[in-house]
Computed example of a mutant assay.
Amino acid sequence: MDYALAPLRRYAQFSGRARRAEYWWYTLALVIASVVTSVLDNLLGWGGVVGGAYGPLTGLLVLSTLIPSLAVSVRRLHDTNRSGFWLLLFMAPYLVMAVMAGMALAQGNAAGALASVGLLGLVVLILGVVIFVFLVLDGTKGDNRFGPDPKAAERTGAYHA
């Protein structure tokens, strides 16, 4: 359970490296918490209150874990010796998609909006698979440009998540 809570203790720390265990245990804990809050929102009749998609409890969970989720993702990419800017590359098409769809809809061109969303959706899917593979890969053995190997530091007792 220590790995699942480590990203919360390192709330906004974007530097350094995160082991696969830290990232994936945190992700599992976040998925479980999301399911629990979603069920509670629906039981209380609050489902879809926030933006038509979330209940207030789920929305609060998403907002409160946004920064640690981004931080642990960046540190996980660092562990594979990749820059955290890969996440920006993954998120950029969403912004472009929104702008293009908005412009097409403003001109009354629903087909153009759908086409732009479809094409950029394919780009997002491909980038999502690439990011997923990076997150699954084992980290760089030994030190890399982002810091010392957390596995080696953990074995010597120097690592404190």
Rank of each mutant, 00 (worst) to 15 (best):
G59P: 02
L63K: 01
D138A: 12
F90V: 06
L88S: 12
G16V: 08
P68K: 03
L66G: 00
G55W: 00
M91Y: 13
Q13H: 11
L63P: 01
V39M: 06
F90K: 01
Y159I: 02
V74M: 09
V31C: 11
M100F: 13
L30I: 10
G47K: 09
L120H: 05
L119C: 05
Y23G: 00
Y94A: 14
I131L: 15
A104K: 10
G157L: 12
G147Q: 11
R82G: 03
S73G: 15
T37L: 07
L127H: 07
A29Q: 05
F90R: 07
L95N: 04
R76C: 09
G121S: 09
V72C: 07
G52K: 05
R76W: 06
L57A: 08
A113W: 07
M1H: 11
P93H: 09
L95E: 03
V129F: 14
W24M: 04
L95M: 14
G52F: 08
A113S: 13
A21N: 04
S83I: 11
L8T: 02
A12P: 03
V72M: 08
L28G: 10
L28C: 06
A4F: 03
R76K: 07
P148Y: 03
A111H: 09
V62T: 03
I32N: 04
G102E: 12
G16W: 04
L137K: 15
D79E: 08
G108E: 10
P68E: 03
Y94H: 14
V117T: 14
F132M: 14
L30W: 09
L44S: 09
R76G: 02
H78F: 08
L40W: 09
G45I: 10
P148I: 05
V74A: 08
Y11D: 03
S64Q: 06
A115C: 02
F90C: 01
P93E: 10
S64P: 00
A101L: 11
P150K: 01
A53D: 00
A21W: 00
Y23C: 02
F146I: 07
L114W: 12
A4T: 05
R82F: 11
A110Y: 12
L44W: 13
G47F: 10
M100W: 11
A153L: 15
L61F: 09
Y26K: 02
D138Y: 00
T156Y: 05
P7K: 00
V123H: 07
A29Y: 03
S83L: 12
R19E: 07
A98N: 12
A106Y: 11
G47T: 05
A98M: 14
I126L: 15
F146A: 01
V117Y: 09
A98W: 13
F134T: 02
L40Q: 03
A104L: 11
V123N: 06
D2S: 14
L114K: 12
N109L: 12
T65D: 06
V49Y: 00
A12K: 02
S73K: 05
L57P: 01
M91E: 09
Y26C: 04
A111T: 15
S83W: 09
V31T: 11
L61V: 06
L105C: 04
T37G: 00
A12Y: 05
Q13K: 12
G59C: 04
L60S: 10
L57E: 01
G59V: 04
T37K: 01
V39I: 15
F132A: 15
K141M: 04
